[in-house]
Nucleic acid binder design. Structure first.
Lengths: 340, 340
DNA sequence: TTGTACGCGTTATCAC
DNA sequence: GTGATAACGCGTACAA
């Protein structure tokens, strides 16, 4: 059933049906009602392709997520969920593109072909070819995360440097003088993953500010890697009494490693980091952490994108969030004067 | 840049460009190369809307996920990831629709309007209006889960009855005679959520087969609810020594509740259930559980859908999986002869 | 290889 | 003010 079918059943022309639906011309109440009745009866909805072809927009946005091989963290999952929900509120559909590499078919389909009106990009690296390609395609886009050149794009991001800096200061205030940073995976950091680098920057800066020493560790994005990482840490650096992490996925493993080593949190070892808000409470003990408002971020990214689609010439806005560290139960005073 | 632009730059007609791209007519090597050069230079890709309009298919499938208000479980997340990946392999795009209720705009956009060639439906209830609406819309669809009338649709599902049955038998073999079932949320079960009902059926059947008694509990889908649920269970039914669950999201809370009550798993209390494969290993202690091959399920659902799109008249295939219970460390012999 | 009709909704233009 | 006619957007595939 197309618009012509509706028109003939209602005894009017196709344009009248279109006007009745869009309201861009006035249509008499009687006619409008006749048309509406037919539409309701047949459950008609305009063909999306025809409309997109004519209007030049698809009412669809693309969401680029990390490829399925890497499991999404809770935080990333919250981003996806909140973007999808925000899009639904704006009557926009979301096309999912799992792509990280350079030759990803689904990303290429997004780029040209007019499938989407705009794109939200996740898991951005300091140098990220996807950004340039989106720019070349003149496709409005917003990053959850940003490249090394902050001004080249519109984005919202967590200030990992500031947040890890806060965590270290918090631990230093509690008397810890040997602190570890558990970063994301070595591959991701090597590939120039922004949060990994910025977290490290904030870490070394805070160490210098407090005149204390730190160990900088990369760790795979899963529980097994977390376990292995913390086990190695305790073995090679027994003087370390606290850790900060941005690696949410490794946390269960870190916790397990501490437990297997006979260490109680926070009595023997303090743990803090950056996690999605809903996740910190589920950790045991509840994690003292910078709670990333992942849902807000997704919603705001969507707002930025809608704004950008409406006015591509507008200045590129950047939003940097540094959520404060929420005190919970996973950090405590350093044990004084004793090796473990 | 549209196909006309390419054609004129290559000095041929639009149809020649189309044939060169599709290969549905032979085009001389020389012209093909000229055309390809222009295409590469301009990075041309056919407009998706125009192609969809002409061909009557969108090369896009819809994936209906639970609304964002309810957080996705690990298993659901694995479904989504694997469906998306399988779609990418088949050069299909995935449109995400977060909808559970009856009046969901994004679901309605999927139904009519020709946005998608087919739909994968998750989190299906025994009576689910979405199934009827998809049937009415004559849109090919596949369920991950199924309604009360198995034959009315094409689906792949976990045999929760068989699996929970196995879990109970396993616990009974270990000497447990008072066993709890921790089901999904009371709202979900009341709404006729299939797995909840089937799990309960398998539970009561196994109890009867073994002549033992059980407690049937609903539990919200998060850690806090799991904690509260297990706390109440231990208080009201101190004779219970084991539990089986299909509520993955509640597991951290269940674990916590047991710990807070001073119970060690599996020494004092055995725990088993149904979880996504990658998740059972991360549990502590590693969970004796039926490991749902969530990734296979997503992939197979996609295969079923592709088949169904290709041949809508084909018989509706159903796939029921009953993954065996993998022995790990969370179940053990019932403590004999003593209340706790 | 090329010309052209077609798919379907939108909207500018014309007629009443 | 209200309704109808027709051109347009773009890729596809049949007829020539």
């Amino acid at each position: 059933m197309n618009i012509g079918e509706i028109a003939s059943r209602a005894g009017v022309s196709r344009s009248t049906v279109s006007y009745a639906l869009s309201g861009k011309r006035s249509v008499s109440d009687a006619t409008r009602k006749r048309i509406q009745d037919v539409i309701d009866e047949l459950d008609y909805r305009p063909n999306a392709a025809a409309r997109a072809l004519k209007e030049g927009r698809t009412r669809t946005i693309g969401l680029v997520i990390p490829p399925a091989s890497t499991r999404l963290t809770h935080m990333q999952l919250d981003f996806v969920a909140s973007v999808v929900e925000a899009a639904a509120r704006a009557d926009l559909d979301v096309l999912l593109s799992p792509s990280g590499g350079d030759h990803d078919r689904s990303f290429e389909r997004l780029l040209s072909g007019g499938r989407v009106d705009g794109v939200i990009l996740m898991e951005i690296r300091l140098e990220d070819s996807r950004v340039r390609r989106l720019q070349n395609a003149k496709l409005p886009f917003v990053g959850i995360g940003h490249t090394a050149r902050a001004e080249e794009m519109c984005w919202i991001d967590v200030d990992y440097a500031a947040v890890i800096n806060q965590c270290v200061h918090h631990l230093a205030d509690l008397g810890h003088t040997r602190i570890a940073l558990v970063n994301r995976s070595v591959e991701l950091v090597a590939a120039g993953y922004g949060p990994g680098h910025r977290a490290r920057d904030g870490f070394t800066a805070a160490l210098a500010q407090r005149g204390i020493q730190g160990i900088d560790l990369e760790c795979g994005d899963d529980a097994a890697a977390g376990l292995e990482c913390v086990t190695r840490l305790l073995r090679e650096h027994p003087e370390v009494t606290a850790a900060a992490t941005i690696n949410e996925a490794a946390l269960p493993g870190i916790q397990r490693g501490l437990e297997e080593a006979g260490l109680s949190v926070p009595r023997d070892f303090s743990l803090t980091g950056v996690v999605g808000r809903t996740w910190a409470e589920e950790f045991r003990p509840p994690l003292t952490a910078a709670d990333v408002p992942a849902q807000d971020i997704g919603t705001q990214a969507m707002d930025l994108l809608i704004e950008r689609i409406a006015n591509p010439a507008a200045p590129r806005r950047n939003i940097l969030l540094a959520p404060p560290v929420s005190l919970r139960a996973s950090t405590g005073p350093a044990r004084t004067g004793s090796a473990r």
